[in-house]
Design a protein around this nucleic acid. Structure first.
Lengths: 343, 343
DNA sequence: CTCCTGAATGTGCACGGTCACATCCGAGCG
DNA sequence: CGCTCGGATGTGACCGTGCACATTCAGGAG
């Protein structure tokens, strides 16, 4: 094994603080101090070190730093259904807010709903020595798995119904659902269906609760909600089934995509929205305003949600004051998919 | 404000290989060999070590491993517009494929289009010692900035028009656009507009080229494409302007969202799709089948694209055979938003 | 002039793994 | 019975950085 390799000049490994130190004529510790903005470094020394750094194209080795400090300056995001509008919007705003706070974001996807998949994803994040965790895969079983796993990092979820309020950041889904339901009732509807999301999802459950609460509060009898899967395809399928019965004048859909499918099915059956059936969605995706008819829906402020997640997490981590500001209030956006029933 | 955290008992540091070694009665190196599946380890020893590992809940420290091997087993993804359907679908499938190959994925967002923002994002990824990079923010200026930056890691982009074929993985956007255009021409349309994406986007440019190529090939005179921003809002706005003129019978939109906005505007003007105007989109987002009318569009196989990105990247990294299979062929999905023109 | 003080800088070690090399031990063979 | 050989395991160094502590140095007080 020849090891007498003539070390080519700029070849070999990347420069480290000792290389910088040598060229700047200081100790490696001084370089480290410059890196970390230590107060007692002479300005001239600092400048010299910085010059050498740019000259050598020096980049601090994050692995080494993480090793010694056990601080990775990384927060993890545990997500599922990332291609959906809500989750991906939230991730985006989390990244933005995290960057502002000097943190990196690593995401891990839950591919399946089994616990193994969750553990795998968490392992991936743990392996990165994340300092905090945001869970935006608000399925009941995910939250449960996480409680069992006793992860060692502070985390924030979006469960709104849980008792652990200090872990939760949320849009007030119940209030949003009540807003939507009240709107329909005030228009004069009495026979209202609810197309819910998957039962396992905390948000879906909360919206369903809001729906039932408002119906009860207004003394309107209800039927059992239909459990969907968030997709437009399912909305269409459910709509076709429902149109065989036609014992309703309005449907509150748990998200906008299913609402779109519903409208499609209703029109296929020769009926009109909103004349025959009123439809309300949830989320206010950017396309909702251009559905036909434009969709009445409940707007969630996703960017604000992402910001609060990070703020809350930093608070829990002790890095920032944890100004808990209560749940975010959603907003009803009335468009043309709702009208008074035509008896 | 509260900080006096009482250090819980077992809170000490996480167990390391030496802890495991001590309890198993072996050396730390033996533990390391177990971790790395070294062949010459007696089965009984291996079992004993593994038992201790689970007992201590041992997790290898990735930072330490990365430090010594300078392998992070992480690939970076540089993305923009992550909340859009295409990018987020691709990211999701990249993560899946990367996980299968034993890699982690770190994403960085380009928040603005300026070069600074790109450099910041790249710095974030570089800091993670990524071994490869996937660029799914296919804006011209991003690719240019990256060429200038001379990053030290292998990378894969989605530029289809570039000469650097070994870096590129792509759906054949030109072919897809020609498919859509040909469909309209074969239906009998002659006055066809193209609503393009932002000029800076490589995909937008490729689709525009495909449109123009096909129009020329079929000897149909063309007008200048309209440059949009991918959003349904813009599609609506553009549609309203276009409806003042009405010198066309069909529009090929560069994505489905803008197509939705177009349909909305056309209907607002009292015209019908497809009777008065035929519309073709691009992407086949899951909602497209439920638009009114259901949208004729060009389907891109995003999951396959993500898989190929990772395969290609691993090939470039020398970790796997780089089976370059040529661009992915998109598929025309004919629905009810297109029909023969009614003269 | 000496001593003290605090700013500026240097020295050695620790972090948790992997690598190169050394060592141990039992089997096979002349 | 001694020697070789290779499988199984141990030993020490090292990766790049930050921390605790040591050291130097200049300036002001006594």
């Amino acid at each position: 094994m020849s090891e007498s390799v003539p070390e080519s000049v700029d070849r070999g490994r990347a420069p480290n603080i000792r290389d910088v130190a040598r060229l700047a004529g200081v100790s490696h510790q001084t370089v480290s101090r410059v890196l970390n903005n230590h107060p007692s470094i002479r300005e001239s020394t600092k400048q010299r070190v910085l010059e050498v750094m740019t000259e050598l194209q020096y980049r601090p080795n994050r692995a080494a730093r993480a090793l010694v400090t056990s601080h990775s300056r990384t927060i993890g995001v545990l997500a599922s259904q990332r291609s959906q509008y809500g989750p991906s919007s939230i991730i985006q705003s989390i990244e933005l807010a995290a960057q502002d706070a000097g943190y990196l974001v690593s995401t891990a996807n839950i591919t399946a709903t089994d616990e193994d998949s969750i553990v795998t994803a968490l392992d991936h994040l743990n392996a990165q020595a994340i300092e905090g965790l945001v869970i935006i895969a608000p399925q009941v079983r995910v939250v449960r798995a996480i409680s069992n796993l006793d992860l060692r990092v502070p985390f924030v979820t979006m469960s709104t119904t849980d008792g652990t309020e200090d872990h939760a950041v949320a849009v007030d889904q119940v209030a949003g659902a009540r807003l939507a339901t009240r709107h329909l009732i005030e228009l004069g509807h009495r026979d209202i269906y609810h197309l819910a999301g998957p039962q396992d999802w905390i948000e879906a459950e909360a919206r369903m609760h809001g729906f039932l609460q408002e119906m009860n509060a207004q003394d309107v009898p209800t039927t059992a909600p239909i459990l969907g899967d968030w997709s437009a395809d399912f909305g269409y399928y459910a709509g076709r089934e429902l149109m065989r019965v036609r014992d309703f004048t309005a449907i509150f859909s748990s998200n906008d995509q299913m609402a779109l499918g519903l409208i499609h099915a209703i029109r296929d059956a020769g009926q009109d929205v909103p004349h025959d059936v009123s439809i309300v969605g949830f989320d206010d995706i950017p396309e909702a305003a251009h559905f036909w008819p434009p969709l009445t829906t409940v707007r969630q402020d996703f960017p604000e949600l992402g910001r609060r997640c990070v703020a809350q997490l930093l608070g829990t981590m002790g890095k920032a004051p944890s100004g808990y500001a209560g749940p975010i209030q959603p907003e009803l956006i009335v468009r043309r998919s709702t009208a008074a029933p035509s008896f």
